[in-house]
Design a protein around this nucleic acid. Structure first.
Lengths: 207, 207, 207, 207
DNA sequence: TGATAAGCGAGACGGTACGTCTCGTCTTCCG
DNA sequence: CGGAAGACGAGACGTACCGTCTCGCTTATCA
């Protein structure tokens, strides 16, 4: 499985290249500029030229640190989303998970949710960027749900035999499907219904 | 909700422009050429220039009939997938649905599944193409599952109160999620496990 | 030499095709529409589609009557310029010719002079249109100067041996040269100087 | 007046953009390719795509160096004509000028004269290209005649008060007029007659 | 401290597809 | 059956973004 821990600069294996003090400055500037651009105009606005111009880092240097513009954007997006979405904690495992589904649904429907969808889409055509999206964004999201699920297991509300990866896919896959195809709007009501049905299958022991 | 019936020539509302006998020839030629290109090199190969050249239809004409190359590809893909995936019929509703999930999982992992993912991704950045993908491809897939689910309801294996759209999202959303992020391979075993868990929540009365 | 007489409908040899009352209506509508377009936006505005739309005559029909859009424009332009530029008549041949040069210079510098230049240029790349420009526009201009020159000959101010075609070329060729290359503005002073020098060579007997 | 000196790379004001060693290579390749195309098929053959393909320089780069294909062609044409047409030197000013007129007339009637006419015509609809044609082609031609005229002045055959620009226009404007409208062929006899008449006005003191 | 090499900014460049435009032909159907 | 309407093929246009490259300047490390 892909690593879920936040890699430090220079310690993320295949995902980074140069090292040292200059490198740190470059990373910071590029990511900051990219975050601005993503917020202003989504992925389409985060062209390499735009990032280079705004960050003051040259295109050549960017390509020495990242394999593609999508990779840059994925990492920048992961960092800007890191502090968002604090975990719910109602004392009830099922309620916590339901609330999390609702929050993610709301996020998908927001402007940054649009960026999320663009990034997910871009990774399809850019295999080199996919690991960046997984490590710097998805890992954090999965970790959050893993925490909630572990609580449920600890409380005896869920079976320790159920693979948390399946839990994640079943709870959030449907939301992503809807977000991408656009065949339905993402509403709180819908998110709750989805969570209820999914959790019925996942946490049947709690019924 | 978006229509699920296959629109006839000239009868698909916003999705087509010119009409008449000449139009029919153009549609046939363009779609045939696009299908070939999709099979040969996926969405990236289906450039408007390539489609124009192979079909003998000029670019300008293509743009009169479709809003973008993604829309052309979506319709072509829908047509080429129309006859695939016959419905399973084991006599057992739950087995049928499980088998369908397995088949779709296999499809997603195939070359044409790659095209599916590319199309889904392309629609994120091309809102005009999204309805084409929904009407000409997704609708057919949803219809198939709707049939299976209806059987289950008729047999008393499922509640008529459950919205089939939710069923579809829960059964296939997770597969799509995995297909897009690539964080796991799509295996038969995994598909079965997913189906089992999801159906536990959806068809609890059958337990 | 090319004919200088205004050809009647159906009587201008290679320059026209259909005949009859319907033809007359079509000619009138097309030329009127084209004249409007030329005045509004010059030659670039007189596209075949625009002419067809404004005149109510179909493109196919236009191409039955003229070999190209430039030919249409040339004829339309000739007709709209037919009444302009009355001949000067000061009683002095040399003054008349000088005045004519000045007037033509002014015309070249006007908006319609721009159209003249565009038409002249278009005929370079459209041999089929050239005769239309010569017959329907240039012939009329040359005829005017021929009249002036004949007066001079009759008065004994010019030699009957001098070919009037050479006179025309020498008097107006320089203006056209300047108009096309744009290396100088066309001013009255310049036109007069040009006429003076040229007429010194052409009408030496008058010195 | 516009400059008549051949501008060096990077020193031609509005007429060029990038500079440096890479730029030199691009200019050389593009102009060489364009010259070939002009000789093979005239201006219509010198499309930007064709120039790009043959020169190995991308379209985008061409558009960074020149405002339009006409500008490229004008410069290429100027360079390929630079060595042509050595000055006549018979010892007699009037004969030299007459000979020059004859040579230019012959040139206009040649295949490259056709290109000249196409270029002149194209500049009418492409104001951005006009300065290129003036600087890189016309300037050289005017310079040649200026030399001949200066000789005449030095020998006392012509008045120093006569503006050489007028001389040029009167000697060559008529040829251009005929070349463009095509109302007469360009023959040696005609050129001589034209030169004789024009020079009668210009060099009357020599009679 | 000064040399040497690597990192870097600036931006030119080739490549490739885009979506648009106008021409002149061809088809369809109406009066 | 002539003509209006307009679909159509052809092919050039000029633009956008990608990712690579070349060029000097700057910075960091080692002689």
């Amino acid at each position: 499985m892909w690593s879920t821990k936040e890699p430090g600069a220079g310690g993320d294996g295949i995902l980074s290249h140069p090292t040292g003090p200059r490198s740190d400055r470059i990373h910071a500037q590029v990511l900051a500029a990219t975050q601005e651009l993503l917020d202003e105009g989504g992925l389409p606005a985060a062209t390499v030229d735009a990032i280079a111009q705004r960050s003051g880092v040259s295109k050549a240097t960017i390509y020495k640190h990242w394999p593609s513009r999508t990779a840059v954007a994925a990492k920048a997006f992961g960092h800007m989303m890191a502090e968002e979405l604090p975990l719910p904690d109602t004392g009830n495992s099922r309620d916590d998970l339901t609330e999390q589904v609702r929050r993610v649904s709301t996020f998908y429907a927001s402007p940054r949710g649009e960026v999320f969808a663009q990034l997910l889409a871009a990774c399809v055509d850019d295999p080199a960027a996919a690991p960046y999206f997984r490590v710097y964004f998805l890992a954090g999201r999965r970790e959050a749900v893993t925490t909630l699920w572990q609580r449920a297991v600890d409380r005896g509300d869920a079976s320790p035999d159920t693979d948390v990866d399946d839990v994640i896919d079943i709870l959030f896959g449907p939301l992503i499907f809807r977000r991408l195809t656009g065949h339905y709007d993402l509403t709180d009501e819908h998110a709750e219904k989805l969570a209820r049905t999914a959790l019925d299958g996942l946490m049947r022991s709690t019924v």
